[in-house]
């Protein structure tokens, strides 16, 4: 794991906003917990635990962006496409909680905002995009890769957008909202492209070996041509 914090720290948002988004995160998680049970039937917990461990391990894998600059996957869209949105959101949340409590990555008071952005908003947006474009995904391998790329890009940018909204409500920096939004969203479009490429290639690799495990393709007349 890189030694740099990726998640919002304490002091970026004021106390009432932190509490507000803590409440948002708790209620979102409550819904996700109930729905994830249906998604994974009786195998819920052990499988979700292993998927969370996978998301956790993947966040340690750095991929090159440019010489000297590397990024790592956030995994929200990837988890949603592979295991479904509710389980995906739950797994990413657990990873965020563990990172905040055991790795000091992300502030404790920012945990609510981080969960809201990355686990709830980002995953939901990425999954909705993927579902909206599902007919392309089931048609051909190129379509599947394109859909996964778009979902991951949208996931990253929407998560950053969530933080812009939180900053607008209770930000503690002295930067104008416009400048802050432009900088944060600009950086996250770049991160999102990296996330998109890796997500697309990963989903492609899973689909060619075990198309039955890709949640997004479930129930589709699984195209044998996906496996290549």
């Amino acid at each position: 794991m890189s030694t740099l914090a990726m998640h919002a720290s304490d002091g970026l948002l004021d106390a009432p906003t932190s509490l507000l988004f803590g409440a948002v995160a708790v209620s979102g998680l409550a819904v996700a917990t109930v729905r994830a049970r249906r998604e994974l039937d009786d195998r819920t917990a052990p499988l979700a635990g292993l998927v969370a461990a996978f998301v956790f391990a993947v966040q340690m894998l750095n991929f090159p962006v440019l010489p000297g600059v590397s990024g790592h996957l956030l995994g929200g869209a990837l988890a949603a496409i592979l295991v479904g949105p509710w389980t995906g959101a739950l797994c990413v949340s657990v990873v965020l909680v563990v990172q905040a409590l055991l790795f000091a990555d992300g502030g404790l008071t920012a945990l609510g905002a981080n969960i809201t952005n990355m686990a709830l908003l980002g995953t939901a947006a990425g999954y909705l995009v993927a579902v909206a474009l599902r007919r392309f995904a089931t048609r051909s391998r190129a379509g599947l890769l394109a859909v996964a790329f778009t979902a991951a890009l949208v996931n990253t940018v929407v998560a950053a957008g969530g933080f812009v909204v939180e900053y607008a409500i209770g930000g503690q920096g002295a930067v104008s909202l416009g400048g802050f939004a432009a900088a944060l969203l600009g950086v996250h479009v770049l991160i999102g492209i990296g996330e998109g490429v890796i997500t697309a290639l990963t989903v492609g690799a899973v689909a060619s070996a075990r198309p039955d495990l890709v949640h997004l393709l479930r129930g589709a007349p699984v195209a044998r041509e996906l496996a290549r």
Binding site: L50, V58, L61, T202, A205, A209
Partner: peptide, 27 residues
């Protein structure tokens, strides 16, 4: 020895395999 994002295909395929192994271990 990848340096650029477009050389990350092997890493990504590795992540795909890692998911399969994690999922199957979960089962």
């Amino acid at each position: 020895d990848p340096r650029f994002l477009w050389q990350a295909a092997a890493t990504a395929r590795g992540i795909g395999v890692l998911f399969l192994r994690s999922y199957e271990r979960g089962e």
